[in-house]
């Protein structure tokens, strides 16, 4: 069996490398660069019940070692996704994760219910998007809010439920515990960190929305610390992300306690990034005589 074979929530992954929501769209654009079957999984572009046009441009600013985005969940809506994207995606030999965001608890439940009847393997509850007014963050900041929305959605969800946590909170481990208490099967973290960029020459904000979410290399130390704190707090699997650009970054997240990792911003800079992480992890196992990558999960030496 492959050294990278990974299993959690009853789902088998070829490797623990998943492309992160919003940086990989629905995968189509990457097929020119590599077969999607190389990937452990894909967390698809964030879906809402109704189609969304997203925010005004500019929606991206580059800052030191990172980017700030304010896309605002532009997506074809659940119906559009099921009709125009899922049929061809379902042919791909990789784990499909639907990332969902709602305006209300009812919308989250409705989406989870509909997606439970499809080829989607896991549902990722996005209660952590900083770029929309309603929904998103509104449910994801306070432990009480998290527990109740997870509990509500879980009743309508026949697939494993992964809850994506925001780093814009007081105590991440309390939020992880709340997700676990609500019935989450796994948690993924981190989503982007609220941030802004100013152009000193024009004296204006770079983004049309003024603020957005920071991601990329710059956030890695924060994400690592949060994964570590959550690992100490909960028993459910943790999927770590935030600034992973190469296999060494991925190993660090796994040592901190991540069962699998997601690659976000790196896909935008190098379309081969996820494949390079997979190849690098393969080599890492070989070089270190590791039979299966899960041996290093939580293996941080203190």
């Amino acid at each position: 069996m492959s050294a990278l074979f990974t299993e959690f929530n009853g789902v088998a992954f070829k490797n623990p490398v998943i492309c992160a929501s919003g940086t990989f769209n629905f995968g189509e654009e990457f097929k020119r660069f590599f077969p999607l079957s190389r990937l452990g999984g894909i967390s698809l572009k964030g879906l809402t019940l109704e189609k969304r046009e997203g925010n005004d441009s500019p929606r991206i600013a580059e800052v030191y070692g990172g980017i700030i985005n304010s896309v605002g969940l532009q997506n074809p809506g659940l119906e559009g996704f099921l009709k125009d994207y899922l049929p061809s995606l379902a042919q791909e030999d990789t784990v499909l994760i639907a990332n969902i965001a709602g305006n209300t608890v009812e919308e989250y439940c409705e989406m989870a219910q509909r997606l439970s009847q499809t080829d989607i393997s896991i549902i990722e509850l996005n209660i952590s998007c900083p770029n929309v007014k309603k929904g998103g963050l509104a449910f994801g900041v306070e432990p009480k809010g998290i527990e109740s929305i997870v509990f509500a959605v879980k009743k309508h969800c026949k697939k494993p439920l992964m809850v994506k946590l925001t780093p814009n909170v007081a105590a991440i481990s309390d939020n992880a515990l709340a997700a676990e208490a609500g019935g989450a099967d796994s948690i993924s973290l981190i989503n982007t960190i609220r941030a802004m960029a100013i152009d000193a020459k024009t004296r204006r904000p770079v983004l049309a929305c003024i603020t957005g979410g920071l991601s990329g290399r710059a956030v890695k130390p924060i994400a690592l610390r949060m994964v570590y704190e959550c690992y100490k707090a909960v028993k459910i699997p943790i999927i770590g992300l935030g600034g992973i650009f190469n296999a060494e970054d991925a190993v660090e997240f796994m040592l901190a306690g991540a069962t699998a990792v997601q690659i976000g911003t790196a896909n935008m800079i190098n379309p081969m990034a996820a494949v390079e992480v997979i190849d690098g992890l393969e080599r890492f196992c070989y070089d270190n005589n590791i039979k299966n990558i899960k041996e290093i999960v939580g293996g941080l030496i203190i």
Binding site: G22, N25, G54, S57, R59, I60, N69, M268, I269
Partner: peptide, 9 residues
């Protein structure tokens, strides 16, 4: 962002 259609920025 990416330049090839994936990130919708």
């Amino acid at each position: 962002g990416c330049g090839f259609g994936a990130c919708l920025t």
